[in-house]
Design a protein around this nucleic acid. Sequence first.
DNA 1: CTCCTGCATGTGGGC
DNA 2: CCCACATGCAGGAGG
Length: 561
Amino acid sequence: MGDQVGGIVLPTTGDAGDGAGPPNFAALAGLLGGHPGAAAGFAPAPGAPGQPHPALSGLALSGMSHLAHMDPSTALLLSGLTAQQPGGGDAAAAQMQFLHNPTAAYAAAAAAAAAAAAAGQPAGVPVVDHGHHHHAHHAHPVAGGADGGASGVKVEHDGGGGGGVGDGGEENAAVRAAAAAAAAADPSDPEAVAAALAGRMAALGASVIFEKSLTASDVSGGGRVVVPKSIAEQYFPRLEAPSGVTISAADLEGRAYTFKWRFWVNNSSRMYLLEGAGELHRNYGLEVGDVMVFAQKQDGSLVVAGRCANKADMVKKQPVKRPNTAAAATAAVQAQPGPAAGRGGGRDARSGRTPARTSTPAAELAAPVTAQSPGAAAAAAAAAAAAATAAGVAMGGVRNGAGMGAGAGAAAAAADRGRKRKGPGSGAGQWAGGAVDGGRGGAARSGGRAGGGGGYPGYGYEGGAGVGAGGEEVCLSVLDMEAPSDGVFRAVVLPANGTSGGHASTGAGTGGSSPGVGVGVALARNNRWTATLDVAGELYQAYFDCRDDAVEALTAAGASP
DNA sequence: CTCCTGCATGTGGGC
DNA sequence: CCCACATGCAGGAGG
């Protein structure tokens, strides 16, 4: 049953034909390493005097994880830390157009508020809205349990489900705070629900990967949910064959789900979709327009949930039902021997689609706060993040190994536990591709599409993992890839004695660098370079495409290569 | 006959 | 202009 074994994505082989282009990290910063400070690191708002984050000891850097925008100047993020301003509002602006999910903000605010409340402080939940949010309607079942008859969907909070989150006192406090915030949410308020959900995710130690606004076909298509390519390639198992793999997940209620993660070859590209979400939709009473939330726990397991749409979900467009009114028109069209009508010619000349915010990647979830409400929200966010961090919850990050030092989790590499069999050389699968350079100038864009070779360098797996020809079966968790060469510093846990599982993490620790984990620049796998920093005893590492960038970043950070 | 699966088309949006 | 996404529709499998 929902037995999540070790996260492995098996390359099913074959089918190399379709274009498996390099992931495009440009649009969505792959902050795979999570963002312990997802809610916190907005210290340097573009334009505002960049001031080092108070909690530099761990949060500051982590916070920077929300890659602003792919910029050649990989040191950009660090610059921010060191008080230098990124290239102006450009990056921020660029992101802003999509940034909209207040979820994180709300969650943080809620958590912070709860925490404050617990501490006896009269902390009103900071408003993170732009001032207006009217929507008393929306009789959504989700949190209120008001569902006509759906199975229990009440937002019941509980310590921390299966996450090994709550242990010590502080941890419990944090978890409780989040849980409390979640519980306190007003079921009738979409925002509150969203916040509650996010809060619960956090309490569970899961970080939101992205949210999908359900479209008509997502709902009707028998649980066939289309997942944006960029998200798919960043956060989900890399797929070799269209047949895809099976991934298991659990919702906040502990219910287990099994999805089929696959893709279709559309044009020269692929269209990713998650099948089998019907049950989840039913459980949460999700309808068109509602949102399906994907998160991941530190152990890599996937957590899913659903919630009704809120204001922020409709910023762009409206779900647009599906004006099937084109009956007549359609008839006419079909009557014509037009070139179209061939196969699926029936297509009505209508557009009809385009939900609001189709999806919101984690990267985007992080920044909004600053942008929308610098003051309170940021503070709240920071507080929440701090709390979470203190509790070792690491709001978003793949932990590597057991200990997480001061709590700044977010190891750069995936925590492939159990049966990850990568060759010593670490052939680890990766998405490294040309992440960085691809940046702005659509270089990496479709152009390459990698038809044959350009794609992803081989996987290190030897196909083991009981993957039959038809392979694809146990793929437990999402995310089993290397950190992108985005120049983002992520906390890493390096065994004092290079005992590292030898995954992606350190080029230094395990790799060739004799100096062990020394701070500095080192050549890592896949011809990438790592810059390692020591911040208050914790190590942070970032990947770059070239040595210069690594050096630059390190220098910018105040360290000497 | 109904449901499921895969696929091709067309629309919009982003670059 | 190209890319990504949503959806309708055909074909096949199962009842």
